[in-house]
């Protein structure tokens, strides 16, 4: 078990190091000089060279990389080439917003998928199960931004129940925060929920066929009790895998949904950075997203071990 923990930690750290090199290298080969962008096309070559020196862009690439990486490790994300503002606090603020959105979306997806998938599996030969299947199939086909626009049209424009956009920090006004969170979280969560439902369904179907579930019923458990006590944890293993992958998808989905709902999250920051050619900002945001995805995968690996005792001795 300790060995596995060390192994997974190792994998996490190595992939983190490799992806930081990739992110840095990708940004380095992109055409366009940040100093030239900052000063405009009319600036003199001397001024550009002077700014390059200030940014440290005249140093060799490996030096720049290790400088950047060292900063990251200390929580210093550098200063924007464009706005001359420290990037760290911005990313941190925006990350909190996006995390709310992603976590709320994930909870909605789970709350939808776990019962729906289980019912679909338990009633896979009955009309109710088939109807749910068709419904989730349709859900899979809808992109998050379209779901978002539809939700705005119905709940904000037609019914007027919820605000169409905006963001209020929870500490400032909890009610408003929740009201504004609901629609974007739904548009992220419902689509992911539809996808997750399919996986929950097949995981539960597999478990229903297991011998130990028959043993559980032979003991005197009713079908649902047997599934709850003996099936849940076993079915959770494949579902957790998908959940980990979906969190990555949700982060990406958040970039788009934040635009639709005008939410100042990491996604908006990234898009702003791209349109302003703020290369260091983009590089930092991408790295934070990569870190989040890798961290989730690492946690999923640990969760496996918690769920399945067979992995503890292996």
């Amino acid at each position: 078990m300790i060995l596995r923990l060390i192994e997974r930690t190792g994998v996490f750290l190595v992939s983190l190091a490799v992806s930081s090199i990739l992110v840095f290298a990708f940004m380095a080969v992109l055409p366009g000089d940040p100093a030239r962008v900052a000063l405009g096309v009319n600036a003199s070559d001397e001024a550009v060279a002077e700014l390059r020196r200030q940014f440290g862009l005249d140093r060799p690439l490996p030096t720049q990389y290790f400088d950047w990486l060292g900063g990251l490790l200390h929580g210093d994300l550098g200063t924007s080439y464009v706005s001359k503002v420290a990037i760290g606090p911005q990313v941190f603020d925006r990350l909190q917003v996006t995390l709310w959105l992603v976590v709320a979306g994930m909870i909605i997806a789970l709350v939808v998928a776990a019962p729906a998938g289980t019912v679909m599996a338990a009633r896979h030969r009955k009309i109710s199960g088939l109807a749910l299947s068709a419904f989730s199939q349709a859900g899979v086909a809808v992109p998050a931004f379209l779901a978002g626009i539809l939700l705005i049209v119905v709940f904000a424009v037609r019914l007027g129940w919820l605000p169409a956009n905006g963001w209020t920090p929870p500490a400032q006004d909890p009610t408003m925060f929740l009201k504004q969170l609901i629609l974007p979280a739904l548009s992220l969560g419902l689509v992911q929920g539809a996808v997750l439902t399919r996986y929950v369904r097949s995981a539960v179907l597999d478990v229903l066929r297991e011998d130990y579930l028959r043993t559980a019923r032979a003991k005197g458990l009713r079908p649902f009790q047997a599934l709850w006590r003996h099936g849940l944890r076993n079915a959770a293993v494949p579902v957790v895998t998908v959940l980990g992958l979906q969190l990555a998808t949700l982060l990406i989905g958040a970039v788009v949904v934040e635009r639709v709902f005008v939410i100042p999250g990491l996604g908006s920051l990234l898009l702003d950075g791209v349109s302003n050619r703020d290369l260091l900002l983009v590089q930092d945001v991408v790295m934070v997203l990569v870190l989040a995805v890798l961290l989730v995968n690492f946690l999923v690996d640990l969760l496996y071990v918690a769920l399945d005792p067979r992995l503890r001795t292996a």
Binding site: E210, D211, Y212, R214, T215, A218, H230, N234, D308
Partner: peptide
């Protein structure tokens, strides 16, 4: 009534 099944390798819950 209680029952013992044929296949012991899969008859028990692996996570309990």
């Amino acid at each position: 009534i209680a029952m013992v099944f044929q296949e012991p390798m899969t008859a028990l819950n692996p996570t309990m």
